[in-house]
């Protein structure tokens, strides 16, 4: 079972990286989204897979039964999902604002911070 999901995770990572490298802002956004899902699955599967027994303590019992799903990765992923959503929203708005300001969605043309004409660093003897 892990094998199927491991291959799935690998393929999702490959898709997201391919999208991220595209140089188009929209594909980059989609790539970030895929990357988030791939990562969540990665953490989930590395905590092992347990079919259909959620990490709940049955009423009447005081401690968890053996054989329930691993709760720790679930807790980590739960917050990760919400945070990655917030950051995804931020990224969306940032991209939108960048497009508005720079009038392009090609990341190669977004060079305000690192313009082509670089100033040369000082040489030792000029100090």
């Amino acid at each position: 079972m892990e094998t199927i999901l491991a291959v799935l995770v690998g393929l999702l990572f490959a898709i997201s990286v391919y999208l991220l490298l595209s140089g188009s802002l929209i594909r980059l956004i989609l790539g970030v989204f895929v990357l988030g899902n791939a990562t969540h699955l990665l953490i989930f599967v590395s905590g092992r897979l347990t079919r259909e027994s959620p990490p709940l303590i049955e009423s009447g019992l005081k401690v968890a039964e053996a054989g329930i799903a691993n709760p720790l990765p679930q807790a980590l992923i739960l917050t990760a999902i919400v945070i990655s959503f917030s950051l995804f929203a931020f990224l969306l708005v940032l991209s939108y604002r960048a497009y508005q300001s720079l009038d392009t969605i090609d990341t190669d043309d977004m060079r305000v911070a690192e313009p082509h004409a670089e100033t040369l660093p000082m040489r030792g003897r000029d100090v």
Partner: peptide
């Protein structure tokens, strides 16, 4: 590059499990 990353991650996950 994408396939390398994907393969690396899949291998990582298989090793972990």
């Amino acid at each position: 590059v994408a396939v390398s990353i994907g393969a690396a991650m899949a291998a990582l996950l298989l090793t972990i499990t």
